[in-house]
Design a protein around this nucleic acid. Structure first.
Lengths: 329, 329
DNA sequence: CAGGGTTCTGCAATCGCTTTCAGACTTCGG
DNA sequence: CCGAAGTCTGAAAGCGATTGCAGAACCCTG
């Protein structure tokens, strides 16, 4: 049986109210009594029952985190960041994986929303209206997507991509291809927009190779188009796809980076282990998780008073072995 | 404001008790009234307050899942399995990542244990006594580790490793090396034991290359030892290490599998994407997650009545490109 | 039609905590 | 030395659900 507040009260020779106050609003209680209460609590190993507290305060002390696919190495890092920051703030985290299924996602959200104080949502493709409805009833922060007045944490894709393009230009490349992710993904749209303006500014030719699933297979599927297009460099929607690309390019007999340079986005662990190691736009995924929690918590404290409910995190090009000077033909 | 049971009661023209019963113990209530209640509930979008329910029933409807490192690709798969199965059973999952730190882990456990009905613990290196203490106060299932009477879900390492050794033997190998994981890891001990008996039975020489961190770097670090040992085949503690090994072997100028065959354990996504693709002992990680939840739930239902609180999941050698016939010198 | 048994429903207690309100005790200025 | 202000503490009322108990209504049998 767990010890309750009454037992602590009895042990300390005070009333339950005093125990409650001693624990959660010190200063309202005489230092001497408080000390006595605290000692009694420790002696009995007392931990307040969160359900009971939540029942009356209306807060659960829990956060919800919804990701589309934990198998995508981008997300574990994010989750770790969320985890760590939430723990520091004494919140526990409910994790749900929607398996890339928007329908499952809204179910999840509905169930989860009741049990948490706030929600962190990575839903690159969920319908905007669904999200707006949700935002109206729950405190929520979106990650990797931005629209309307919904609080969000995103990466500065433009800057990272600008760096990538500058890098390629410096290496003498004039033709670059884009291997696109899902058509409906916000990041994908954001990134290609950034890429367009960067290549325009640099006077480079851009070849866009449609939309592919954001997985290894997507990169494989794109490779032959890329080869046929005759570009000397390619930027992929994410690292996993870039790795797929790398594999298929090699199978087709091309050498990276001598024949073609490849850049990814994300900086997942594996990208420093591939051969060649992958040049990539590094995203601070853990920080994004922490930032999302921070934003969420401040939103919870002052529902309207948050001056800037949008955070944009810096990105950084990481040059590794998959990019080199453009082939001279 | 959320709708409460009283409002539903009023809407349906019955008492709160009846609403409660209609929802959670149908059969105890007249079909006609029940129908009326259900419609009222749906109309009002009623969802029972879990905290309130938990307060009286003593159950939270939550499960806790503690993993050592979400960045290790083994775990996301496990988490997904747990997730999915828990959701089916209408449980939500608290996830905590201990960052491979046993101290942090026990804190986590303490906090989490209060908020869940049961705990799934992946703690390959936690102290046995800590776990026993925990098991005494909480319903818990361990994954990937077995000792005492603590309920557990593990993989049949012996069988997988036997398959791997048989495969190597069939290819003509007579000398095999083991690249070990953490000294204190239960799986590591279990696997090397299995390997010893398999190589003995097959009359093969076994070279054990100490202990390495279970990461890519660990595999890299082991590679030179392996080369120096003169074996023609090697089995690594896990896929990530095997991939590290692959990288370093290539850098050293060895061809896989012509000069040396490499086998991993886990079957992480990346192992089918490497070059060469990795032969590996495949573990059904998702199933393990589901099995852990199943076991936990049955334990919760009948604390003592579970006939076999240990599950062992099958393993299967997956032959890919990193193994080939032994070099003839 | 009386009496016993079912079936269904409502009342009220309760889970463990927070919080309002009022009372008890101090302190202090006049 | 009295009253006002200030400081602590306790009693009690909930939060929103579940559930034991008892009463009401109905069924059936003899």
């Amino acid at each position: 049986m767990r010890t309750t507040i009454r037992e602590v009260a009895r042990e300390a020779g005070v009333s339950p109210s005093t125990v409650s106050r001693a624990l959660s609003m010190p200063g309202l209680v005489n230092p001497v009594t408080r000390e006595r209460v605290l000692r009694a609590a420790k002696r009995l190993g007392y931990e307040p029952n969160r359900a009971a507290r939540g029942l009356i305060t209306g807060r659960t002390g829990n956060l919800g985190l919804i990701v589309p696919d934990l198998a995508n190495p981008f997300f574990p890092s994010l989750v770790k960041g969320v985890q760590a920051r939430a723990r520091e703030a004494d919140y526990a985290v409910f994790l749900a994986d929607s398996d890339e299924d928007p329908a499952a996602e809204s179910d999840l959200v509905r169930v989860l929303a009741k049990q948490v104080d706030g929600l962190i949502l990575c839903s690159p493709r969920g319908r905007e209206e669904d999200i707006l409805t949700l935002a109206a009833t729950t405190t929520l922060v979106m990650v990797n997507r931005r629209f309307g007045r919904v609080p969000s944490v995103v990466f500065d894709n433009s800057d990272g991509i600008r760096q990538a393009v500058a890098h390629l230009a410096a290496l003498g490349h004039t033709r670059v291809a884009w291997v696109g992710g899902p058509r409906t993904s916000w990041s994908n749209r954001d990134r290609i927009r950034a890429l367009r303006s960067a290549t325009d500014a640099a006077g480079m030719d851009l070849y866009v190779a449609g939309h592919f699933p954001p997985q290894f297979e997507g990169g494989i599927a794109a490779a032959d188009l890329i080869i046929a297009s005759g570009v000397t460099s390619v930027i992929a929607y994410n690292d996993v796809m870039a790795l797929g690309l790398l594999g298929r390019l090699r199978d087709r007999g091309l050498r990276v980076p001598q024949d073609i340079s490849v850049i990814g986005i994300d900086d997942i662990q594996m990208s420093s282990m591939s051969s060649p190691t992958l040049t990539t736009v590094s995203l601070t995924k853990g920080q994004a998780g922490r930032a999302a929690v921070d934003l969420l918590l401040s939103l919870l404290e002052q529902p309207d008073g948050v001056r800037k409910p949008r955070r944009e995190l810096p990105t950084q090009l990481l040059v590794r072995a998959s990019t080199g000077v453009a082939p001279t033909d």
